[in-house]
């Protein structure tokens, strides 16, 4: 216990200068002490890593609040910028930010369209109100001086209303286009499809694998599927062959076959390929039916496993699926 106390204080910066000297000397001369220190170093570093991970997950929870605050700040900046109320000094910095951040520029454009839409709605409401006033005037006792003035206004009001409706339609079309470009099933799959570029190795005599990979590289998917399918389960490269078979099926639109191949690759439990296979199994199920319980359950599994290589992607995909834009994309 004495040694352990000593070692523990060494790793938590609790040794005095004198103790440190003795510690270092013993480390040089006593091999069993050295082994002990090395083991505990791993343990205490592991604990430190676990504390960091715990804090990291906590801070991730705070991130949502930051982004919400940041969005509010952005909207205030958009309003000031578009109305011309932004001071010149801030304007230059804001324009520089717009130039460097395409996402911010896109949000500004969306906001501009929304404002135009709101204006159009106000114009439309005004038109309805004016129409009601006109009806009242027609029913009221003759007021000769006013009637011609109302008649004179009609054509202009109609023109405003037509323009307003057009702007509103354009605003909606712009938002719909943005949603489809970024949140449709196809767009989300394109953002998240991450096939391995190359096999683990192409050396050796696995001719079927090599030929399959060559065909896949040349986008000759039927041939690739035929080669990869012929690699038997007892072959050491079976898991990788199933993974590439999955890619070939997926890229050629054979989603049910892709689901089966990725499932087999994941079930082979080869650490090099299983997580990539699981991720693409998820995408294949998503492509087949985004509302299916099988897809939801696998997505849930990946979002709950911070050790999974595709954990971050799974969280992002889940956030996208729950967003306003996804609903607008339909």
């Amino acid at each position: 216990m004495e040694d352990l106390d000593y070692i523990y204080r060494h790793f938590t910066a609790g040794l005095s200068a004198e103790e440190r000297k003795t510690f270092d000397a013993r480390l040089q001369s006593d091999s069993s002490f050295r082994t002990q220190v090395s083991d505990y170093q791993l343990i205490f570093e592991g604990f430190r890593g676990m504390r960091q991970e715990r804090f990291f997950q906590e801070a991730r929870g705070w991130k949502g609040e930051l982004l919400a605050d940041s969005r509010i700040g952005d909207v205030e900046a958009f309003r000031a910028y578009l109305s011309g109320a932004m001071p010149e000094s801030e304007k230059a910095a804001f324009e520089a930010r717009l130039g460097q951040d395409p996402a911010l520029a896109a949000r500004l454009e969306e906001y501009r369209l929304l404002l135009a839409g709101l204006k159009a709605m106000r114009a439309e409401a005004f038109y309805r109100q004016a129409e009601a006033w006109a009806k009242e005037l027609e029913m009221a006792p003759p007021a000769q001086a006013k009637k011609p003035a109302v008649k004179f206004l009609w054509p202009r009001a109609v023109r405003y209303a037509a323009a307003a409706v057009l702007v509103l339609a354009l605003a909606f079309a712009g938002m719909k286009y943005y949603a489809l470009s970024n949140y449709s099933t196809d767009a989300l799959i394109a953002q998240n499809y991450h096939p391995r570029n190359t096999p683990a190795t192409l050396s050796g005599r696995e001719d079927l694998f090599r030929e399959g990979f060559n065909a896949y590289s040349e986008k000759d998917f039927p041939a690739a599927i035929a080669f990869f399918s012929r690699i038997p389960e007892e072959n050491p490269r079976y898991a990788e062959a199933q993974l590439f078979l999955g890619y070939a099926c997926f890229e050629s639109g054979r989603y049910p076959a892709a689901v089966q191949a990725f499932q087999r690759a994941a079930d082979a439990h080869d650490q090099r390929f299983s997580e990539n296979a699981e991720w693409h199994l998820l995408l294949s199920r998503f492509r087949e039916n985004p509302a299916s319980p099988a897809f939801a359950s696998l997505l849930d599994k990946l979002t709950r496993d911070p050790q999974h290589s595709f954990h971050d992607e799974a969280l992002r995909l889940k956030a996208s699926l729950g967003s306003f834009w996804r609903k607008l994309a339909g």
Partner: peptide
């Protein structure tokens, strides 16, 4: 220039 979401992820790591 990075999307806010990516900057926030980077920030969480850096702050940790």
């Amino acid at each position: 220039g990075l999307p806010d979401e990516e900057i926030a992820e980077l920030y969480v790591r850096a702050f940790t």
